[in-house]
């Protein structure tokens, strides 16, 4: 029930990379546009949509790729981007466990406050 942040070092390191990559607004913008695109988006479209120079986009895309959040695949003359949900899911899972713990704790606080009330009256 109590959430576990990370039992194994590899998971911890991976999470650090994921959170580190997500800690930059420009990279979140890249990921948001890529993730909401119905089909794998090309790097040039992605540069257009995020109003980034190809050089800057490349830099951010490399960081996201290193964190395992997305992959760039060459198709013909274009490179297309796919988002890897698994890495993000792991980060979300971490957040969910923390949320479940604190949500439960605040429910307990509610019940405890009522208990104290009853004792007083």
């Amino acid at each position: 029930m109590v959430y576990q942040l990370a039992e194994r070092a590899p998971e911890d390191e991976r999470l650090d990379r994921v959170f580190g990559a997500l800690a930059h607004p420009a990279r979140r913008a890249v990921l948001r546009v890529a993730a909401t695109s119905p089909a794998p988006i090309t790097m040039s479209e992605l540069a257009d949509r995020t109003r980034m120079s190809p050089q800057l986009l490349n830099k951010h895309a490399a960081a996201l790729e290193q964190a395992g959040l997305m992959t760039r695949v060459a198709r013909g003359r274009e490179r297309r981007v796919t988002v890897d949900a698994a890495a993000l899911d792991e980060a979300l899972d971490w957040m969910n466990r923390a949320r479940a713990f604190w949500g439960g704790a605040l429910d307990s606080l509610d019940a405890y406050v009522e208990e104290l009330d009853r004792e007083q009256t």
Partner: peptide, 19 residues
């Protein structure tokens, strides 16, 4: 850009009937 504005953290809010 909601995500850029909010970053990564967990926030919970509650009202309680105690001071």
């Amino acid at each position: 850009m909601t995500i850029a504005d909010t970053g990564l953290a967990l926030t919970l809010e509650r009202d309680y009937r105690i001071a």
